[in-house]
Amino acid sequence: MTTTVQDKQPAAAAANAAIERTAAYYRLKADVEDFYYHEADLIDDRRFRDWLDLLAEDISYFMPIRRNVKFGQQAARENTRRGEGMSWFDEDKWTLTKRVEQILTGVHYAEEPLSRITHMVSNVQIKAVRPDLDAPRELDVTSRFLVYQNRVEYETYTFVGRRNDTLRLTEAGWKIARREILLEQNILMAKNLTTFF
């Protein structure tokens, strides 16, 4: 059929092997998990402006569309790409701020009344540390999410997937510099994506 493109190991997975599971690794992992739980609280408690503060000014927030492709083409073609074409989200802090402002108008009817949402984060693994574990400034972290949304009366959606983040340490703590959200759906099985992931 089509030319086969060999699946490449993601760079993060290769880096995984390099990080030794030392006490310093687990301390850092606990720190990152704590950060994620805090982030989930902010969104679920509808403290959206505080959530924005966790995002680096130059954040790239990206949710590709997942496509059904032939075996062997996953790496090359399964996901739409950051920086080209259409995805679900491929945006910066300005746009994310607009999304928050919109909810806060109180007349964004798709989130008025507000949905009830719970974010679960799990499977946290640090895949790369820069410059090193002794003085980490920037991390590549993978995790899984399960987001439950209940809206008005009967409307219920479950969003499950992975996140690939780059976190950056600042004076004010960790900030999300880059986030890739891989929702495990092809055709979106929800009428809207009004929450943050």
Binding site: M63, M86, S87, W88, F89, D90, E91, T95, K98, R99, Q102, H108, Y109, A110, E111, L188, A190, K191, N192, L193, T194
Partner: peptide
Amino acid sequence: YMRYSGPAGMTEQD
């Protein structure tokens, strides 16, 4: 287009 349209678009969500 992405911020305006469809299920992730700020306009069409409503």
